[in-house]
């Protein structure tokens, strides 16, 4: 399905699938502090019903939280602490550079579908969802959205994203990290074909404040190129040319290089505490969302 057909149908998520997504929630391996009260357990101590700990009473503490039973037994004042529940920030960094407008199924559409699914889950579970479109910088951003009623607005925003321009991944990541200091789950959806190196960008989002998930999306034509003969390969992003004569050794070398590239990305991400997930657009995106992302712990 191309972007044009998708726009005609107007559907990134169908209702049945959305109903299945209702069962899921965004999971974070880290206990992160939120911004507002929410449904997510926070590192902060707060006023939920779930007991967390005791501590010595100090003057000025609220007397309502003194454990009088302990006082009766030990003749000392202890204060009962409870876990705080806050919301979770979910950042979806979608690569909408021109290189993603490639493949069948189209990589950009796939990325948008995954982003739509994740943002739906996030919104439904009262998480703060922020979709950031990256190409030669940050080209569009939803800002933090919460609640189910924001779903149509979010889906509309995502569906209107159009792949264009070159990829300045490092610049976009830097700007994102500077602008979003709130901790949260950061999901990067891209093909990661970045000529000046993915490392320069990922270093900004692989810091401790984000729980990083990198979903590398490639089309079947990139994984198993069906090319023959003497070709002039044109980079759709920057119009760069590469003249090749497709031979068995060249194909073998290409696949080896692709494999090595993906492994290098995975290695980079996992070393920094993130999670890497490879996906071909040939894999239905609902399978990716419902199975793979659950398996990797992003959804639960």
């Amino acid at each position: 399905m191309t972007i044009a057909t998708e726009r005609k149908s107007g559907l990134l998520l169908d209702p049945q699938f959305m109903a299945r997504l209702d069962q899921l929630d965004i999971m974070s391996r880290k206990l992160l502090t939120g911004k507002m009260k929410g449904e997510r357990r926070s590192k902060r101590r707060g006023q939920s019903v779930e007991f967390a700990d005791y501590r010595n009473y100090t003057i000025g503490d609220d007397l309502r939280f003194i454990d009088w039973n302990i006082y009766a037994r030990l003749d000392k004042l202890f204060l009962k602490l409870f876990l705080e529940e806050e919301d979770l920030s979910l950042y979806l960094l979608c690569d909408v550079s021109k290189s993603c407008d490639f493949g069948n199924p189209n990589k950009a559409l796939y990325i948008k579908q995954v982003a739509a699914a994740l943002s739906y889950i996030g919104l439904v579970n009262y998480n703060r969802v922020n979709v950031v479109a990256m190409a030669d910088g940050i080209v569009a951003e939803t800002g933090g959205m919460r609640g189910r009623r924001r779903v149509p607005q979010m889906i509309d925003f995502i569906s209107k994203l159009e792949p264009s321009g070159e990829s300045h991944f490092a610049d976009a990541c830097k700007r994102f990290a500077l602008a979003h200091r709130q901790k949260g789950v950061c999901v990067v959806l891209s093909d990661f074909f970045i000529k000046d190196g993915f490392e320069h960008g990922l270093k900004y989002v692989a810091s401790g404040k984000y729980d990083l998930f990198c979903v590398q999306t490639l089309s079947p034509q990139e994984i198993e190129p069906d090319l023959q003969g003497d070709l002039k390969l044109k980079d759709i992003e920057d119009s760069d040319m590469a003249e090749v004569s497709i031979t068995q050794p060249l194909m073998k070398q290409y696949k080896a290089n692709l494999n090595a590239y993906c492994l290098a990305l995975k290695d980079y991400v996992t070393r920094r505490g993130g999670t890497y997930l490879f996906s071909s657009t040939a894999v239905p995106f609902d399978t990716l969302v419902l199975n793979y992302l659950r398996e990797r712990g992003l959804l639960g």
């Binding site: 490639f102 074909f193 970045i194 044109k234 060249l250």
Partner: peptide, 26 residues
């Protein structure tokens, strides 16, 4: 020199790497 057919790809990044790796043998 061969008249080459133009073929769009998402990125020439990996192709060029492959060409460079193979150039000694080509």
């Amino acid at each position: 020199k061969l008249k080459r057919r133009e073929m769009p790809v998402s990125s020439t990044l990996l192709w060029k790497k492959a060409i460079q790796d193979l150039q000694v043998n080509a």
